[in-house]
């Protein structure tokens, strides 16, 4: 071993944050880390993060956080460049993991929407469907949510820095509701709640305020949407259209939710 102390510790991981079709809310969760932000900034080299800094370092990157869905031909091409430059690619948020709210267009023809919304439809170059990142490139880890949970984002960065597996559960919301002592809005109030089939992670934001879960974190590991839909319809008297719309929300294009909503078309 060489004598004398060295000032440089192990090389800091290079982090890049990429935006595709999205609202930027998930990237903001990183800037929203407040108390932990300085430690994070100190632990990683922020090499590319336009939301935070104009400085750009060239790839390759140790970790890429990818926000947004693939919604344009340009997106579809660019995601491959990101993948090529990234050792680990982590998708963040409902857009990147399920196509996002903009994937509602996937259930209809795109052109009438473009014609109705834009003054100059000829300038718009969109794909017929908004799709999640994993439909295009290999994804190493995904963080759900609309937006993602700041605690979960920190956990992933933390696990990466400390060389361990992230503690990100894939079971349903109900376990968290019960741990927190929330009264079930479905059983006690007859609200149509997606919690039993929605992945945990938000800290039961809605049911904790006595409002049924919107499903922002997408389907659980084994979602029995058919049984939930049957109960909502047959026993709680919610109509077919209501059940369809319930599943067709922020993560409506996630496989399990999409298939269930199509049954109630």
């Amino acid at each position: 071993m060489a004598k004398g102390k060295t000032n440089s510790g192990p090389r800091k991981p290079k982090l890049a944050v990429w935006k595709f079709s999205s609202c930027d809310g998930c990237q903001l969760s990183l800037l929203d880390c407040e108390d932990e932000l300085l430690t994070v900034a100190d632990s990683v080299d922020i090499a590319y993060f336009l939301e935070a800094t104009r400085a750009e370092l060239p790839g390759p990157y140790d970790v890429s956080l990818v926000e947004g869905s693939i919604s344009t031909p340009h997106d579809a091409e660019r995601i491959h460049k990101v993948r090529r430059q990234s050792k680990l690619l982590v998708t963040i948020g409902a857009c990147a993991t399920s196509g996002g709210i903009q994937a509602l267009r996937n259930f209809k023809d795109l052109d009438p929407f473009i014609n109705a919304v834009y003054a100059h439809p000829e300038y718009i170059d969109s794909l017929a469907k908004s799709t999640p990142i994993q439909d295009h490139v290999k994804v190493d880890f995904e963080l759900r949510g609309c937006p993602i949970d700041k605690g979960q984002l920190l956990e992933v960065i933390n696990a990466l820095l400390n060389g361990r597996k992230p503690n990100i559960a894939t079971h349903g919301q109900c376990i968290d509701c019960k741990r927190q002592g929330n009264v079930c809005v479905m059983v006690a109030h007859g609200q149509p709640c997606l919690g039993p089939v929605t992945q945990v992670g938000c800290g039961t934001l809605c049911p904790g305020c006595q409002r049924a879960c919107y499903g922002c974190f997408g389907p659980t590991e084994t979602p029995n949407t058919a049984s939930l839909a049957r109960w909502l319809g047959d026993r709680q008297g919610h109509g077919k259209r209501e059940v369809k719309h319930l599943f067709r929300g922020f993560t409506g294009y996630a496989d399990a939710f999409r298939k269930e909503s199509e049954i109630h078309e």
Binding site: C174, I175, P196, V197, T222, N224, A226, L228
Partner: peptide, 13 residues
């Protein structure tokens, strides 16, 4: 199993 949501409410309560 066709009815069970695997939501774990039974075990939590």
């Amino acid at each position: 199993a066709r009815r069970c949501l695997y939501c774990a409410n039974c075990t939590m309560v």
